[in-house]
Amino acid sequence: MFGFLLQRAWQACIVVVAMSVLVFCGVHAVGNPVDVLISPDATQDIRASVIAQYGFDQPLWRQYLGFVGRLIHSDFGRSFVYNMPVSELILSRLPATLELTLAAVLFASLVGVPIGMYAGYRPHSFVSRAIMALSILGFSVPTFWFGLMLIMIFAVQCGCMPAGGRGETVSLFGTEFSFLTADGLSHLVLPALNLALFKFSLMIRLARAGTRELMLSDTVKFARAAGISEFTILRRHVLRLISIPLVTVFGLEFGSTLAFAVVTETIFSWPGLGKLIIDSITSLDRPVMVAYLMLIALLFTLINLVVDLTYALLDPRLRKGRA
């Protein structure tokens, strides 16, 4: 197991280094921040001094080396726009996004999987057909439309839910969280539901396909032949067997939701990372873009590592080879 962890850490390093090069070059190919940073009527001297100050006169590779050098001292640079250290800026926004994403993904899995398993267990019943039809809808309805509808119905018409913002927060380990107060929780529900919709449908369909296939397998037949009840078969045999593809998708979806919660965050004015990255792209705030993309790459490799470790936990056949 130790060797496996070491190997994965090594792979993660390579991914992060490759990512830093790609991101750095890519971001520098987009626009010229000088035009945004300096007012058009500034003098030529001021222009030159600002360019020199940010190092834009250097060749790209030298800028990259400078960036890496600062990185080693855990300095991601300063935001052009907010004029504060990027690491501070991102860390102040990360908990909000993490909270929202986790709520969405957990809801999608904890509710979606049992529903999907039911639909796979009774594939021909009316309820299952209705579930499947609705899950198609869940795939095809655009997130922004669904979000606007949620606001229209629950915030505007009924007035029972807040339309946006994080609400009251509680400080825990030095960061602010919404889910611990009633007000914060009510602010969390709608955006989490909106963000969960696609994943919810995905989990239902995955759980249904897996369950449907397994119900015809010899494993289930043998368990039935031993007189084990249907509920125990579903809970102990089927759930364990379908959990491997589910965990894979859970990991991937968790990562991508974390990175691309933008639409939902914008609609519900959730002060998360998504809004920050959109703002920094429009204002060509390069240090924020680079740091954000690197953070996402790191989170992805981390999530994948956890998923891999979970595989070994779920499937004993994988344990031996990696021990």
């Binding site: 397998s217 010899d218 494993t219 037949k221 043998f222 368990a223 039935r224 032949a225 031993a226 007189g227 084990i228 102990r236 045999h237 364990r240 067997l241 779920l314 499937d315 004993p316 056949r317």
Partner: peptide, 20 residues
């Protein structure tokens, strides 16, 4: 089933649950 009549299948790898 299992108490009065029980059954053994052709492929024990498929019949037994690999993750339990």
């Amino acid at each position: 089933r299992g108490r009065i009549i029980s059954m053994v299948f052709q492929d024990p790898m498929a019949a037994l649950n690999p993750v339990l």
